[in-house]
Amino acid sequence: MSRPRNRWLLPVSLLLALLLALLPLPAVLQPLRPYWLALVVAYWVIEAPETAGLGFAFCIGIVADLMFGSLLGEQALRLTIMAFILQRFRARMRFFPLSQQALVIGALLLNDRIIGTVVHRVLGEPVLPWEYWWAPLLGMLLWPPLFVLMDALRQGRRG
């Protein structure tokens, strides 16, 4: 259970994820940009299910769609699907070691790319080049340190 003094962590982590997604990167690094928002939403769905659920994921996705100027509802759909899968397997996933959790997150981020590609193909929109398929791997590698950092902040641990 989170302490009242750490209530700032959820909104700040979401704001930081949105800002990291908007941060300009060189063209060479752009395909490697992890889906920060999905990583942060995944953390909250796993660790604070009473606060972060499907409605939470949908609303954050709509905000992201509006901020990024993307197809309205696309990120909301992608984040809601991810949150649904995480909610379904949350009880099991919490007992996985971080390395196995990272594999699950990697699979979810890959699934996210597939859903985005299907949505774009159905609507006749351009799809991302193949280089962008490396980002889920980077997100998978970032999951353990992100999880440990967020958990330490949420529980108020130091060092």
Rank of each mutant, 00 (worst) to 15 (best):
R33M: 11
R33C: 12
P34M: 10
P34I: 09
Y35L: 08
W36Q: 08
W36N: 07
L37H: 06
L37G: 09
V41C: 03
A42V: 04
A42M: 05
W44I: 06
V45P: 06
E47D: 12
P49F: 01
P49E: 01
T51W: 11
T51F: 11
T51Q: 14
G53T: 06
L54H: 07
L54N: 06
F56L: 04
F58A: 02
F58Q: 00
C59E: 02
G61D: 03
G61E: 02
I62G: 03
I62F: 06
I62W: 06
V63M: 03
V63T: 07
A64I: 04
A64G: 07
D65S: 02
G69Y: 09
G69D: 02
G69F: 07
G69A: 02
L72M: 14
G73F: 10
E74K: 02
E74Y: 01
Q75Y: 12
A76R: 01
A76E: 00
L77Y: 02
L77E: 01
R78I: 14
R78L: 15
L79Q: 00
L79S: 00
I81E: 01
A83P: 02
F84N: 00
I85R: 00
I85D: 01
R88T: 08
R90Y: 06
A91N: 12
A91I: 05
R92V: 12
M93Q: 10
F96L: 15
L98V: 08
Q101L: 13
Q101I: 11
L103H: 10
G106V: 07
A107C: 12
L109H: 14
L110F: 15
D112K: 05
R113H: 08
I115F: 12
G116L: 00
T117H: 07
T117E: 05
T117V: 07
H120W: 04
H120M: 05
H120F: 05
V122E: 00
L123A: 14
E125T: 02
P126C: 10
V127G: 07
V127S: 09
V127C: 11
Y132Q: 13
L138D: 07
L138A: 04
G139P: 12
M140R: 02
M140P: 04
L141R: 10
L141P: 07
L142M: 15
L142D: 09
W143D: 09
P144M: 13
P144G: 14
P145G: 12
P145M: 12
P145I: 12
F147G: 03
V148K: 13
D151V: 04
A152P: 00
L153W: 15
L153A: 12
R154N: 11
R154M: 06
